[in-house]
Amino acid sequence: MNLNVLIAPDFAPEHFAGWHMLNTLMQRKTGLSLRLLTPASASEQAQLIAEDKADIIYANPFDAASMIRDAGYVALARPIDKANEMVIATRAESPVDSFRDLKPGIKVALTDNKDVKLIGLRLLEPADLTEADIDWQVVESYQAAARLAIKGEVDACFMLAEAFNSLSRLTKAQLKPLIESKLADISHVILVHPRIEGEAAKLRDSLVGLAGSADGQPVLDELGIHQGFEAMAVEDAEFMIDLMDTLLE
C-alpha cells in the first residue's frame, strides 16, 4: 500500500532531514510504502489536502480541528511536551518594552500560519488590539519576519516559539521578545485518513516506540522532538479542538 505522508510546512528548516529520516524509519518499522510530501506553504498544503493526497498528516492544530471534525481524520499521536507556543518580538532597540504598549496601527510581520496569527491576536487582547487594528505584512518565512522587525520596517513579528528559538544567536540578539504564550494544551498532531484507519494501530505503536530506541531516538533528536510521541485518544483530540474553538471569534 502506497501512502502519502504530508508534513505541515511550519517546521524549522533544520528539521527537514529529520522528517525524511523519520519517513524512512517508519517505512521499515511498519512495512508500509510511505511517500513524504513537504509543501512549502500553507496554500500548497491546502491544495494537496483538497486533492485528497494526505493519507497521513503532521498537522498544525488549526488544520487538525477541521480535518478531524469535518473530514473524519483520526488522531494517532502528538509530540510530547511540544506545544505550539508563539512569540511576539520587536527589534532590540525599540522603545516598546511590553506588548501592552503596542498601539492600533502597528505593523506586524508573520508567515501564513493561522495558528500563530490566532494565538498572537489572543495575546494582544489585554492591549485592546484587534485584527483590524493591525497592518499585517505576510512574508514567506519566519526569518523574513524577523528581518523586517530588526530593520524597523514593522513594529513586531509573530512566530512560533520553536522558530524563534531556532534563529541564530546574532538574529535573536537583535530582537526583543515582548510576550511568549504558555498555552500548553495545543500542539501539532499526527492524523490518518479514515480510509487507512486499519493501519492506525501499527503506525501509532511504531511512533510511540521511537523514544529511547537505538534507531528512533537519533531521528527524534534530529526533529527536535526529543521526548518522542505519545498516543492520542479520540477524547484528547476532541479536547484540543474544543480549546481551539474557544479561541475563535
Partner: peptide, 19 residues
C-alpha cells in the same frame, strides 16, 4: 463538548482581558 452528536459537558477557557 459534543461527542457523537451529544453534549457531554462544557469547557471554559479564560484569557486575559484589557483594563
Amino acid at each position: 463538548n459534543r461527542r457523537g452528536g451529544q453534549v457531554v459537558g462544557y469547557s471554559s477557557v479564560r484569557r486575559e482581558p484589557s483594563r
